[in-house]
Amino acid sequence: MDRKIIFKNGIWILLVAAGLVGGYFMASSYIPGNTAVNEVKSDGAGNPALPENFKYDMAKLKQYDPRQLLYGEETKIKTGLKEPFGLTVNKKDGRVLVVSTEGMLVCDGAIAGKVAALPVRLEGPGSVSFGFAGELLLAGRDRVNIVSGTIIGFGKKGKGVGEFKYITSVKANAKYIFTADAGNRRVCKFDLKGKYLGQIGRKDKAAGKNFVIPSPHMDMDFDSKGNLWVANAGLLQLEKYSPEGVFVSSWGKHGINIDEFIGCCNPVNFVIDGGDNFITAEKGVLRIKKYDKTGKFLGVVAPPGTFNEKNTSIPLAVDSKNRVYALDTIEKTVRVFSEKGY
């Protein structure tokens, strides 16, 4: 009978104790934080409203002060090309050249001409520009062509000397041709005949510089003194190199303010105008801005909302009158901006 009583009381005590221990662990594992009660409001369709922190507001980043707008859109050129990727202006005659893999369009000012065949077949999108002597530099994904009466082509796919993976810009001054290869994250230097001379970047520890290119956007241009500027997009900086390709200085910082660059990798494109000012194009928050030669923010050329949001790059060019040409690669138009009152 004693055993029975022990059983009776023991089991009771044991079980309740087990429960209490469990409960204690439950309670102790809980550190009281701030428990804001989830206020579930209903929207019109009878669905619970989303908590505010799930909203990710892009609109905030797109704000700008209209007083900072320096340029107005002058005109828009329909290209009629399927996938235009390259845009350049011949500063000598003011002709605008838009290039796609299937052909090119020469525009005289704002008046579009006819789509003509390319002088050379391009493997994939690349870049286009005019050289110092008026020769046309036409680059595909991994091959550069110098077109001036004769066509000189060089480069092939790879990461070795004189090889390319993903050319995003090709520019030439009086002596050299520079190619920006986003795939290899380097800038290569060639002479005007296409002979390899050297490279900048590519973990070039000696030069102390390295290009950080997370996405296929890496642009270049020369200023009036012949210095080479390269957009180190991953660092959100523009870097200055001497005509020989030696690093000199850089500017640019990241942030959400209008004078800063936002995103992982900006500016995706830039161009230097006659006054040595920088015109920069950004993706993410699609906008074109203007900086002076020291990197001081001057104003907005094209505010957010100007371009189709699907654009991930906006190839730029300026003509001798400092009009800014921007290629909307989604809507396949060249948009021309000029300073207000021009």
């Binding site: 701030n34 804001a36 009660v37 989830n38 908590p51 922190n53």
Partner: peptide
């Protein structure tokens, strides 16, 4: 008592 599986921005 509040949270139903998603973290909230607390005041």
């Amino acid at each position: 008592s509040g949270q139903q599986g998603n973290i909230q921005d607390s005041p």
